[in-house]
């Protein structure tokens, strides 16, 4: 029954769907989009900027097209998950790669605005551990939920990453702590809560979906 869904690497024509996935995951079940509020850029413009990020040739972060796997049904993308091995291809962290992309694509004046807002998110920016598989932006279109597509995509990321790096020992995912449905999905696929990060800024909830982020981890055998 699963065979009607094709699991494959993302291609340029998936970009609109991937942007939908990034926006939905960033909102974490709320209407607050941190990229929009922190940079003071309206959501439609953020979508265009994310398309530009995905168009750039950049590997190893959550805004890289080649980080994404897609579940396709009847020729259209219905679920997406990003994944990459942190620091595997270079000494550069995914955070720096993502930051370079933003520097390159986002308007400079908005970067200055975000810099002035930096205290809002700093306590819940979780460092990514080297040589672990990082999972981000797990998204399934509403109509296709309950079909275990997220799990299949995560497992495919694990299989691909193990083939590339047989010593892979851990998979990690970061989630806003308000997102109970996402946490349930991760628990179902073997992730356990590791650390909770809480923002010390009273402004955080004005800008972000929640003031706590949870690091979850799956240890591979």
């Amino acid at each position: 029954m699963n065979d009607e869904y094709l699991i494959r690497s993302a291609v340029v024509t998936d970009n609109i769907f991937i942007v939908e996935a990034i926006i939905a995951a960033e909102k974490s079940g709320t209407e607050k989009l941190g990229l929009s509020t922190l940079f003071n850029i309206p959501e439609p413009e953020i979508k265009k900027l994310l398309m530009c990020c995905l168009d750039e040739e950049s590997s190893g972060c959550e805004f890289s097209l080649n980080s994404f796997l897609i579940a396709e049904y009847s020729g259209k993308p219905v679920a997406a998950v990003a994944g990459w091995i942190e620091n595997f291809d270079s000494n550069i962290s995914s955070r720096t790669i993502k930051t370079n992309l933003i520097h390159f694509v986002f308007p400079k004046e908005n970067i200055l605005i975000a810099h002035s807002n930096s205290d809002i998110a700093k306590d819940i920016l979780i460092s990514r551990e080297k040589n672990t598989l990082q999972i981000e932006y797990v998204y399934t279109h509403n109509e296709y939920r309950g079909k275990e597509l997220a799990g299949r995509l995560i497992n495919k990321h694990i299989a691909i990453s193990r083939a590339k790096y047989p010593g892979l020992a851990k998979v990690q995912v970061q989630v806003f702590n308000n997102n109970q449905s996402a946490k349930k999905v991760y628990e179902k696929y073997g992730f356990k809560p590791i650390s909770l990060y809480t923002s010390g800024s009273k402004e955080t909830l004005k800008y972000l979906p929640y003031h706590e982020k949870l690091l979850m981890e799956k240890v591979l055998k």
Binding site: R95, N100, I111
Partner: peptide, 18 residues
């Protein structure tokens, strides 16, 4: 490296590069 310098986070990275 950038990560080793206290305070050099994502946003300050962008400002430094600019």
């Amino acid at each position: 490296t950038a990560e080793e310098i206290n305070g050099w986070d994502s946003l300050s990275h962008m400002i430094i590069i600019t």
